[in-house]
Write a protein that binds this DNA or RNA. Structure first.
Lengths: 150, 150
DNA sequence: CTAACTGCAAATTCTTTGCATTAGT
DNA sequence: ACTAATGCAAAGAATTTGCAGTTAG
């Protein structure tokens, strides 16, 4: 596991209940390397827990996103994707390389230190200039992956 | 206008026709500072050109995006937004500050030079490492704007 | 002339909501 | 017990598609 995972107490401290669906969904997110959609989660979970409905997936994802325990992404294919945020997940800070042909996503962790440094500096400056309370950032590159190149 | 605008010849060179709807849509994009949705465009255009349908807007936007004359964004409110890409638009290189409360978007052009430098370096390195043909990048910050802060 | 383009209506796809039931605390 | 959370079915919203008529080159 590597990292502490206080999501249970976090939920409860905020007055939310600890339910099977939430447990299962978060567990799945913790064990996934992919950027999963609501439907992906549903299909996967459905094998073991056929009683859990798609609606619950959506509602849980919304809750978790609002609590900033997960991050919602749009990679341009019309469905939202989710991943645990850094504090709760098992992946380190990374950004995305999006293939616009096949919608494959590559997570890259290279060079992010340099990026992060610049980002933080920029955040401070923007925050001051626009009186904006920053809560997150996203960097992504789009292009064509090696398989789609020819 | 400030900048040359060769979109007509660009379309024609690719075998596409120069039609009223396309003319009108691009003209609107050139005169808009906002990040407009398909619906926004439709509503605006509809005043003067009630014969142009929403479907055509979508199809035109798809065409233009595919030709990289416009860029499609998702700011998290479930509808796509569009803006002319740098070569065809009237705005300089910028990034987005997205208020997650009211979905207001601030374009910032501050500090982008430094960013751009890093981005270009990163692009080169990623491109080599992952054998990925890069075509674009996006940086965005999310948070709460000054009006939504209290 | 003829293939690209368009508009309309219908279809699709993703996501949200209403409501009666279930289950945490 | 009390209320949040759930599942189902239905609704909603954004975007896409089929097709017959129109238009640019």
């Amino acid at each position: 596991m590597g990292k502490h995972c206080r999501w249970r107490e976090r939920l409860q401290n905020h007055g939310y209940r600890l339910t099977i669906p939430r447990e299962v969904i978060i567990e799945l997110l913790r064990n996934t390397k992919e950027h999963v959609s609501a439907e992906d989660i549903y299909m996967e979970i459905h094998k073991k827990y056929p009683a859990i409905g798609l609606t619950t997936i959506y509602r849980t994802l919304e809750l978790l996103a609002q609590m900033k325990m997960i991050v919602k992404f749009d990679f341009g294919d019309g469905r939202a994707r989710y991943e645990l945020s850094e504090e709760y997940g098992t992946k380190k800070h990374h950004h995305h390389l999006i293939c616009t042909k096949c919608t494959k996503i590559i997570d890259y962790t290279d060079f992010v230190d340099e990026e992060l440094e610049l980002i933080e500096k920029t955040e401070k400056r923007l925050s001051k200039k626009y009186n904006f309370q920053l809560s997150g950032h996203a960097i992504s590159f789009t292009g064509t992956c090696k398989d789609c190149k020819e």
